[in-house]
Amino acid sequence: MRTAPATTAPTTAPAALAVRDVTVRFAGLTALDAVSFTVEPGSVHAVIGPNGAGKSTCFNVLSGVYRATSGTVHLGDTELTGRAPHRIAALGVARTFQNLALPPHATVAESMLLGRHRLTRSGFVSTGLWLPSAAREARRHLQRVREIAEFIGLEKELDHPAGALPYGKQKLVELGRALCMEPQVLLLDEPVAGMTADERRRVAAVVAGVRDSLGISIVLVEHDMGVVMRLADAVTVLDFGRRIAGGTPAEVQNDPAVVRAYLGAQE
C-alpha cells in the first residue's frame, strides 16, 4: 500500500462533524427523525441500516443537496445546514454518489480535474484568452491529479474515457475525484456496491490508506457488513429514519435492536 503524498491544500486542524437532531420531512413522510451522531476527526464512521432507513437522505443533508427541516450539522465551529452544496464543498466536504455521476465522454484525468475546481481560480476570461497563468494552474493541478491516481491505482487509465471503464474502476474514479478536492470529510455512498471481491479489497485498502495517511474523516454508507466491520471505527444504525443504535462495530453487531431491524422481530 502506497502512502498518499502530502496534500498541497492548506491543512486546517481536523474538525469533528457533528449531526444534531436532524429531521427531514418530505410532505407527509419523515425521512430522518431527530438523528444525531458525531464523526470524530480522522475516523471512519459507518452509517448502516436496511433499505429506506434514511442513509442517503442523511448524506444529502450533509452535502447540502437537501435542506434539513430542523436540526443542525456542524463541521468544527462552522454550521453546514442551510448552505448551498458548493459552499459546503468549499469547506472541505467531498462525496461520492451511489449511482455513478461521471461525465460520459471526459477522460479520467479530466473527470478528476473537476474535483480541483474549488482549489483553482481560472475563469472564462483567463482560459478564453489562453493566458499562461491558466495553463500553469492546469499543469500544476494535473500533476496532483496524477499523484492521486497513482494512490488509488488508476495511473494507467488517466487518459481513458471514464465512461468506458469497468464499473468497479468507475467507482474508483469517483473516489479519486472526491480525493482531488483535498477534503477534510469524505462521504462515501456505497463505495463497494456491485464490485468484485478483488475490487472490494482494493477500495477497502484505499479507504484505510486515506484515513491513515491523510487523516481525513470518512463517513461511509455501505451494505457490505464485512467491509463495514473491517473499516469502521464507529457505526450508526438507522431504521425508518431513526437512529436505533450506535457504537463500535462489535457493540452494534450484538445490539438486539439492530438484529431486530435487519432480521425482523421474533413473534
Binding site: 452535502s63 443537496v65 448551498a84 452544496p85 461521471l102 482560459t127 478536492m181
Partner: peptide
C-alpha cells in the same frame, strides 16, 4: 479549461456539479 469542465458537469450531473 476549468470553466468548460464545470459547464459540462452542470450538463451531465447538476447535483454532482454542486457537490464538487
Amino acid at each position: 479549461g476549468r470553466p468548460g469542465r464545470a459547464l459540462n458537469a452542470i450538463r451531465d450531473h447538476r447535483i454532482a456539479a454542486g457537490v464538487m
